[in-house]
Design a binder for these strands. Structure first.
Lengths: 102, 102
DNA sequence: AAGATTCATCGTCTATTTGCGATGAACAAT
DNA sequence: ATTGTTCATCGCAAATAGACGATGAATCTT
């Protein structure tokens, strides 16, 4: 990771594609997003039922998706409702479309 | 990485998105693809001039892009000409479009 | 044949990712 | 107050990714 002398300055667009792509680079995160989109929203518990992985692992993947901006979580004690972040979703859609169109 | 008992069977579509995304998940690979697309093709040497990274590092990133199917290399001794794999490019474009459309 | 050029691969180091169980925080229900 | 539920976070282990220099293979040029 450490770049010795020469720093590369990536453009915002390059970093945006890389960031969204990184979020989508694990199949379980792809699955989570699909599931979220099909339900429009869901609770963490529904995901842990759907996906045979430890609850802590799913929670971590949700965190990554949230940090990438693709989803958002609304706290509804004692549960948390996750939804696609429609704005970011549209941005990602456009970013990829532009990227692949050139 | 080790999934203990429960293996998850991802669908081909989930794995496809994850695979393409992984290839795009590093900004330097995004840049390489952009450069490749703008020139339609280029030699490794042009990339090592353009991008301030060790030649071996760039070669590794090219390898990853090739393994993801997004580019192909034609050996033209003593050089190698890399081009976008148009078929895979079109597939990726469609895969992302479908993914974000649902 | 000897050297130069171009690129891939190997080995090494460090950082990041991925997975899990255990624990903790926040709240609801009793 | 105590207990149960839901979820996030911590700490650990193992695997993968990313960067580099050094070396090697293949092919031109001389």
């Amino acid at each position: 990771m450490q770049r010795t002398s020469n720093e590369i300055n990536y453009s915002p667009r390059e970093e945006q594609i890389a960031r969204f792509s990184k979020a989508l680079s694990h199949p379980v995160r792809v699955r989570i997003l699909q599931f979220l989109d099909s339900q429009s929203c869901c609770f963490t518990g529904e995901l842990t039922e759907e996906i045979p992985m430890a609850q802590s692992t799913i929670s971590q993947h949700l965190k990554e998706l949230k940090e990438a901006g693709l989803i958002q979580g609304d706290v509804m004690p004692p549960r948390v409702k996750y939804c696609i972040n429609q704005k970011a979703w549209a941005e990602a859609k456009k970013a990829f479309a532009v990227f692949f169109d050139k």
